[in-house]
Computed example of a mutant assay.
Amino acid sequence: MKIALITGVSSGFGLETLKALVELDYKVIAIARREERLHKLQELYGDKVHPIVLDVRDKQAVFNAIDKLPQELTNISLLVNNAGLALGLDEFDSLDIEDIETMIDTNIKGFLYIARAVLPLMRKMQNAHVINLGSIAANVPYYGGNVYCGTKAFVAQFSKALRTDLRGSNIKVTNIAPGLCKTEFSEVRFKGDVKKADGVYENTKYIQAKDIAKIITFIISLPEHININEIELMPVTQTWAGTFSEKI
């Protein structure tokens, strides 16, 4: 049985990817902050899921959790580094400083803690794969995106640099950069304001978390000699907005 580790499994991309991988006979090390949701996953999937209640921002907790994995779960061949969030949609100088730090601590530092803790185990495998969840925001700035866009630009560039570091190791690295997707993303961004979050997706046909899970299962099904460096995708109803010129 293959072993995968996924962060942010309590909802969205992480949850749907977990479901898809279980169907492919993976055992999943499932990391999330919400304990009750992890318990439900374990009740549903039994020993196919190994839950770990963890906030990826906690550096010591991340390394302790990986160090304490049962020996039979250390043969990790797939890492889906998914945990991330956006907070607020304000101009940078109006953005709450705590929200800025939370995005950086989660999307960059937590993302790196997980990769740094898990990669030494993956290097022992004959073949392995790191899949990072980025965003079109890495390349497409938008009003109020400031810090979030910057964090996803980091994910995109780090993914390329990591693949370079891992040359000769048979560890693949892929950055998946989705556009408009409906998950809990906007609810988190607007701090529980469901009406405001739903307005983001009104009159659109958005990407769903299941679509991302399908893409991940496709990527990992490819022959061992093929590495997908990056996939950028949008729903058909979304495209680029172009540049903006202020009237003076």
Rank of each mutant, 00 (worst) to 15 (best):
T7D: 02
E232A: 14
K214S: 15
T243I: 11
V22P: 05
V200P: 02
A209T: 01
K68R: 12
V28H: 09
F92C: 04
A128T: 06
T17P: 00
M125E: 15
F185T: 05
T239S: 15
I114P: 01
A115K: 06
A197L: 09
C181H: 03
P51L: 00
L222P: 09
P70L: 08
M122Y: 10
K205Q: 15
N146E: 11
A138Q: 10
A86C: 13
E23A: 14
F190G: 02
Y201P: 06
E43R: 12
T204V: 08
N139P: 07
N146I: 03
K182W: 06
G179C: 07
V80G: 00
V80L: 14
A156C: 08
L222R: 14
V147H: 00
N132Q: 09
F190R: 08
Q238W: 01
T243E: 13
T17V: 11
A153K: 08
V80H: 04
I114T: 11
M234Y: 10
L44N: 11
K172H: 14
K247F: 13
E72N: 15
S77Y: 01
L24H: 13
N203G: 10
K191A: 10
I76R: 01
V28D: 07
L18G: 05
L85R: 08
W240Y: 15
L54I: 07
K195V: 14
V236E: 13
R123K: 15
E91V: 10
K2N: 14
D58L: 09
R33T: 07
K210R: 13
L54S: 02
A137G: 07
F13N: 03
K19L: 05
W240L: 15
R57W: 05
L95M: 14
A61S: 14
L44H: 10
T243Q: 10
K247E: 12
A20W: 03
D67C: 07
G110W: 08
I104N: 04
L79G: 03
G134C: 03
R116M: 10
